[in-house]
Design a protein around this nucleic acid. Sequence first.
DNA 1: GCCGTTTTCGGCCCGACTGTTTTCAGTCG
Length: 579
Amino acid sequence: MAEVFEEIALLMELKGENPFKIRAYRTGAETVMSFPGDIIARAQSGDLAGIKGIGEALRDKLHEMATTGGLKFYDYLRGEFPEGIFELFELQGLGPKKVAMLYKELGVASIAGLQEAIAAGKLQDLAGFGAKSVQKLEQSIAFHFSHAGIFRQEQVAHDVADILAALRGHPDVSRAEVAGSYRRGKETVGDLDFLVATSHPEEIMAYFTSQPWVADIIAHGPTKSSVHLASGIQCDLRAVTNAQFPFALAYFTGSKEHNVALRSRALKYGWTLNEYRFASTTPDGPPPPTDIHEEKDIYRALELDSIEPELRENTGEIPAAEEGSLPRLVEMDFLRGTFHNHTTASDGRNSLLEMAEAAREMGMEYLGIADHSKASFQANGLDEGRLREQIAAIREMNQGWKDFRLFAGSEVDILKDGRLDYPDEMLAELDYVVASVHNAFQLSEEEMTNRILKAVENPHVTMLGHLTGRLLAKRDPYAVNIPKIIDACAETGTIIELNANPWRLDMDWRWWRLAKSKGVLCSINPDAHSTDGLHDLYYGMRIARKGWLERSDVVNCLKVAEITKLLNAKRERMAATLT
DNA sequence: GCCGTTTTCGGCCCGACTGTTTTCAGTCG
């Protein structure tokens, strides 16, 4: 539904419609995407009143989509332009005006069509297209075919560290930060935004654009430059003064929606807020606040608690900051252990002992081992005999530690029909069980949901692993009704994993507030297949924070005695209910 | 198309860079 609103916005831009109307569709798409609940169920039952950004017209359209699976208004708009026209927007430098012109004047309606038109020399005759524009378009096309455009955190983390070090090492730079979606901890980023405070901006721009990791320069001005790195990611740098730095950092960290909300709040105080400063809206208006040195000073001036970058998505953080009800976000230092880790017994690269020692060195007090079960034969899953040997080895090893403990678990396949890959007697011997789907991804949403619900009903299933099976920028999540799963987990006391592998980051951060509101607990699990993999916990932590999770929501923060008790709680509770 | 201490109509963020259009439009973030 959000994608349909996005495409409607694009089509209306092509038609040259009222830009504010277009923005309303974009806002609507954003609202739908980040809605903390079952928006489809709400739309089906017509229960959409009072959602900010969704007015009468968008409400009706959501209802129509949710009940009929289509939208007449959208079909009508689509009929006015050919199918392939959307891909033209993926080219850097092409916006709605130029795409409309290309289509209207030359009949260009795809990237391939554009290539033909360029080859035939047709673009030169078009108003607004000179030789340089054509050359840039050819570059954009080449770039489009050679790069993905979406990057996972772990793909860019090294670039970010290198660039920050280079900027901070320059004698004319007093402060440097990475901003943008990377700083907000998004699961993937489309570009990287850097910011420096300097009194010699032009020198910094020259320095930045001449670095060895720059593949090509997109733009190079006195205070702003854009380049592509070798990895293909676009990287922007802005230079401001020291006094402007907190404003610019807040501005370029975003999100756009968060900024809009902050600016409109500033207006109520009689101030404008931009990337450089507060200013009075009128000459005789209230004087703007002074003494702004850090981002938190900006929030304080607007009578808001300081808002962590991860929360800046305009999904309720501003009202919460106003009334002092922002969450105290969970931190890396709070983690005492983690679950769902593999060893050489299945498809891991390190032994039980090596994994345990690595966890101890990281300062953990416990580590849960969960190798694959036998149905995952491609991953050398354990049969019951090998699993019992592993359990015995873990019990034996635990004798040797006073300050550390291994938990014997398993990542048990949820079979296609919802049964588990081990019988209950086997599961009962384990300290805990992670239940995950590893095959038959193509089931319908109803079948997949029922499959997982059946696993949740099992008293031995302590937690659900990677709930949607997604691989970021590679494989879509499988269809599953997440609100239903969350309700069942709340009902049964089943924990949901936040898989910290940077490819997965699953369950998605947008669902955690719903889970939290129902009392469902989170386990941040690295799904480590090596000792190095344990460090992926960091990526999971960023996502947990993005999901508004606090120390009390994350089971990894519990002490050994507390977590031991919790791992047994569901079994005991369900046994009590039965008797 | 949405919203409201500016409240049912009038306003909705705006600055940097590029290329081409001799004064600015388009794109981007």
